[in-house]
Design a binder for these strands. Structure first.
Length: 616
DNA sequence: GTTAGGG
DNA sequence: CCCTAAC
């Protein structure tokens, strides 16, 4: 998708690693450097113009954040740690902590480097080694940091604004973290409190799972927290000393165990992606944190040794859809996406699906994804459950075939009598069948009077048969011209839905008898060479349906045809019997039904292939 | 390209 | 009939 686009930089994913001195008003400005990842992976320092562009973008972004109360929620989905900034003293404002990546370069301005406000976090494994004394310097979330020295633990931010995005002086309050806290044990209210302490804003979310995930993730992603002596394991916040096996635990963020709801869903829908599971033990912080970047080919400098297990199989569309459903369900609780956000999505052009690892961690780096399906290559916010198949290609012929307001049945009836019906190109045989379902008629099905089947001849045939019947048989013998001659429309019209005629059914059944079920190509070649509109898949499908119908109908095997008042073509019972017989021979009989078969056996041996089937 | 199966 | 995974 991406690669197919004529791009200048050969799929380079422009990523900024650092931006320099953009925040003049900040006490301790972040020192970034703006670079662009070149096609070969080199980091190209940004030009002055590019920096200007980014500055503007950041300005916009800041304004935007003020308008959007809960930008952080999005950013959390986008945040990707894994960057160890060069300086050990950096300041991250709320706005700046949002990772805002526009992964799809506007072709019009490819030279402009993509704006990336890097989350000021090193991998947790490293940050946790940071001396606490530098904590406030390292991780203050406030712009002016008035009380950066003493996060007041007695008054846990009761006056903190509900939306901290606009440069509030909120600081995380970890006073609650004295001792162990098991998030699982907390009631919703407590969780909400903890949420507030963690994020500095109120939440009305009652979903415990969601709260726990948010808190865990928030703490894990928080510099402040990681600078403490606490770690998180399995929804339990505990002192580092108490944690024995903390090595990989601290990286697991909130992994499966806590992620009850969502993860179980993932499990269900992902059961075929086995390697997911096996990755379980391999996960490390760097792996988790960098996985998103990894997908973006930015991992060159980052923990590349972790990048090993790749998913072997591409996920199915269904997987993507279900994933989207889960995500949308989660995000729907939070906020409506501002338009701006969509421009800042973090999505990896290389992968329209996220690696499974990302799913498992609660970092949700992809708000949107590349949708290569349907060949559009367009980036869409979510893969909603839209119609999967491509739109009907040639419905114009269909419209032509069904002119005016005449409904199908009427048209068919008319054509049955009126030779000069509008659809002369249609085989009248088709119309014969359809007639049986027409309103005015008794449900007498019209059986093709095939010479070989006396059974059919025994059936009562309605008046109009004689005419049509001939046609039907003619089709049976040499319908090629009729079928193959589509119409004056040019090219063969491939109707998207052409009801199966009895004749075709018979041919199919005979074909199955002759070549065996499953040899659809063979059957198509021989028996349906004159029916180009029946593909082998069609034959298979029809056979499947016949099979089903036959066993449904068999219990009440009247000699009559199914006189159900259905619009579909009723299949004569004898044919169904034969279907069943063939199915029996070919071992296609459902075990349940196989017991009660063999009763109508005799009635079905009328066809030419009866002898064959007999000795078979 | 074909087959099997789900939708 | 469409779509897709597997073969």
């Amino acid at each position: 998708m991406e690669a197919s686009e004529p791009k200048i930089e050969d799929c380079a994913v422009p990523v900024t690693s650092t931006i320099r001195a953009l925040e003049k008003e900040i006490a301790h400005p972040i020192v970034y450097q703006l670079v662009r990842v070149d096609g070969d992976g080199r980091l190209v320092p940004a030009t002055q113009d590019e920096i200007m562009v980014v500055e503007d973008l950041l300005e916009d972004d800041k304004c935007e954040s003020k308008l959007v109360p809960d930008t952080r929620q999005i950013s959390e989905s986008c945040i990707t740690e894994g960057y160890l900034l060069e300086r050990n003293s950096f300041q991250v404002t709320e706005e700046k902590s949002n990772v805002l990546v526009d992964p799809v370069p506007d072709l019009g301005k490819i030279d402009a480097p993509e704006k990336v406000a890097v989350h000021g976090l090193a991998p947790l494994s490293e940050l946790s080694n940071v001396d606490q004394s530098v904590r406030t310097d390292v991780c203050s979330h406030s712009q002016d940091a008035p009380n950066e020295d003493a996060p007041n633990e007695d008054t846990p931010n009761e006056d903190a604004p509900s939306t901290s995005a606009s440069g509030s002086s909120w600081k995380p309050d970890f006073s609650k973290l004295e001792g162990k806290i098991c998030l699982d044990d907390l009631p919703v209210k407590e969780l909400q409190e903890t949420f507030k302490a963690t994020f500095g804003r109120e939440t009305s979310v009652k979903d415990k799972q969601w709260l726990k995930r948010r808190i865990t993730m928030g703490l894990t992603n928080s510099c402040d927290f990681s600078c403490t002596t606490f770690i998180i394991r399995d929804n339990v916040v505990m002192k580092k000393g108490e944690e024995q096996i903390c090595h990989r635990v601290k990286s697991r963020i909130s992994a499966d165990s806590e992620d009850g709801v969502a993860n179980s869903n993932f499990r269900g829908s992902l059961s075929d992606h086995d390697n997911r599971i096996k990755d379980d033990s391999d996960l490390s912080g760097a792996d988790v944190c960098s996985s998103a970047f990894e997908s973006c080919n930015v991992t060159k400098d980052l923990n590349t040794e972790q990048i090993t297990a790749k998913r072997a199989r591409k996920p199915t569309k269904r997987y993507i859809e279900e994933l989207s459903e889960i995500e949308s369900r989660e995000t729907s609780e939070k906020l409506a996406l501002p338009d701006k956000i969509s421009r800042y999505q973090f999505a990896c052009p290389e992968t329209h699906i996220r690696p499974a690892k990302n799913v498992r961690s609660n970092v949700r780096p992809l708000v949107t994804r590349q949708d290569s399906l349907g060949g559009s290559g367009v980036q869409i916010p979510f893969v909603s459950r839209i119609r999967r198949s491509r739109p009907r290609e040639n419905f114009m012929p269909l419209l032509k075939l069904q002119p005016s307001g005449m409904d199908l049945a009427t048209r068919q009836v008319r054509s049955a009598f009126d030779i000069s019906g509008p659809q002369e190109d249609d085989k009248r045989n088709n119309d014969l069948i359809k007639t049986s379902s027409s309103p005015g008629w008794t449900q007498q099905p019209l059986i093709p009077a095939c010479e070989k089947d006396e059974h059919y001849s025994g059936m009562k045939i309605v008046e109009l048969e004689n005419d049509i019947e001939v046609n039907d048989c003619s089709e049976d013998n040499s319908d090629d011209n009729v079928v193959t001659v589509p119409t004056q429309k040019g090219g063969m019209r491939r109707k998207h839905h052409r009801p199966w005629t009895i004749n075709e059914v018979v041919k199919l059944v005979e074909g199955v008898a002759r070549y065996g079920a499953g040899r659809w190509s063979e059957i198509k070649r021989h028996a349906f060479s004159s029916c180009p509109y029946r593909t082998s898949v069609d034959l298979k499908d029809k056979w499947r349906n016949l099979l089903k119908a036959s066993f449904v109908q068999l219990p009440a095997e009247k000699g009559i045809l199914n006189s159900r008042k259905q619009a579909s073509v009723p299949i004569p019972a004898p044919i169904l019997s034969r279907v069943r017989e063939l199915a029996d021979m070919q071992g296609q009989i459902p075990p349940v039904i196989s017991a009660c078969k063999s009763s109508g056996h005799s009635s079905s041996d009328r066809s030419v292939h009866e002898a064959r089937s007999g000795f078979l």
